[in-house]
Design a binder for these strands. Structure first.
Lengths: 235, 235
DNA sequence: ATTACTAGTAATCGAGTAA
DNA sequence: TTTACTCGATTACTAGTAA
């Protein structure tokens, strides 16, 4: 499937805005060109090509012709619209995944303890995190898409900062529950030291001890795409 | 205000889809190029230019850089999204306008009487129209936008047809009420013989006689953008 | 009026490649 | 590995103009 040309998309969009979705509109190439801020010749070419590629139908009778989007044309616009909608109007959603606990090299603990981050955790998450992260390796498969999915939601933003030596990247946090019992927060770092199959989790207390977890244990995590944090409002 | 370049828009859209709206995402120019079906060089150039024009911010540290949409970038996408939304998800709406009754040259009556149209009126509108149209000249001003606005709605479609001599264009119909009393139907022809300031109205009966209208009379019309016709369901 | 052709120009892209 | 440069090829555009 060949995709629509960039310039053609904007022309097709303009035709949509002019009402060519449900009926033919009378439209001269000059008028169209004015709206696209292009020459009359360019508008004419666009219409010719859009017609040839099946996005529009045209009727020419003497003077100004008329244009109407075809099903293909409307569907093309709708598919792009739907993509944008899924992100721009994303509603809170629950993602559930499973993974195995493993030990990192305590970089998580180091970063979490940095004042630049810690202050934001306390302010935005409503708790002072236990200095250490629970590393979870996702089960291969659909889970690999999880981080990408989650990233489409605003979450709770942790800003990056810099000291005199280096810069520290930002992150996004999402409220979550481990094994249907322990409230925690999933952290997605802008610059993670792990690949996409690893998720890091923090909580006010030491998760490993609380749930008696050891390396290799399988846990279930429910992540909420909401940006409202429950540590701040409920117990 | 300079508008975004066509090709840049698609790149910006791709970044949105990758989740760069609310946080920086790690993304190589090669990965981006693959998604855009362009070369790595083109992707690199797009990112450079989008950054220069303030649509994105980039962080480069050694290996893969990361990208995040700026407010300007997100707003640009949202404005395009909103335009599409207003048309693709248009909700039924009432338009009210005023205009002066005037006499045409009875072309309306001729067209309405054609079997190709008349059959569709009976089937789709639920009535056999009086053979004649009420011509209304809109009061200059915002009313001039009315037809363009209405055209964004599907309405009730009357298909064009052809006989052995010529082709006849299609039209869209919208239920309407004149002077808060008489139910009628506004017709927007694909190829109208009038300019944008004129609206044609049909009804099962002769509107002029029923409302005692003569040329120059001012009438008020409420048009409903719904595609459900009330002649078929209620009295 | 239109629309759309031709020809010349400007923008964009891709291959090669340096840092 | 990256990213982004130069430069030749390709594509998209505008001006002029015929139909």
């Amino acid at each position: 499937m060949k995709s629509i040309k960039p310039a053609h998309f904007l022309t097709l969009l303009e035709l949509l805005l002019l009402g060519a979705k449900d009926r033919a509109i009378q439209l001269s190439t000059i008028e169209l060109a004015k709206r696209l801020r292009k020459s009359q010749q360019a508008a004419s070419k666009h219409l010719c090509e859009l017609e040839k590629e099946g996005y529009i139908t045209r009727i020419r009778d003497g003077k100004v012709g008329s244009v109407k989007l075809t099903n293909k044309g409307v569907e093309t616009l709708i598919s792009i619209y739907s993509l944008m909608k899924s992100i721009l109007e994303a509603v809170p959603k629950v993602f559930e995944f499973k993974g195995y606990v493993f030990s990192g090299f305590r970089e998580g603990a180091y970063y979490i303890s940095l004042n630049g981050y810690r202050r934001q955790f306390i302010e935005k998450l409503g708790f002072d995190p236990y200095p250490g992260t629970l590393n979870v390796r996702l089960i291969p498969g659909v889970d690999r898409e999880l981080k990408r999915e989650l990233n489409r939601y605003p979450g709770i933003t942790i800003d990056g900062f810099e000291d005199q030596y280096r810069t520290y990247g930002g992150a996004k946090c999402f409220p979550a529950i481990i094994n249907d019992s322990l409230k925690c927060v999933v952290i997605l770092s802008e610059r993670t030291h792990y690949d996409d199959s690893v998720i890091e989790i923090i909580a006010p207390i030491q998760i490993r001890k609380e749930l008696h977890l050891k390396d290799g244990d399988l846990i279930k995590v429910k992540v909420y795409s909401t940006s409202v944090n429950w540590f701040k409002s409920s117990s």
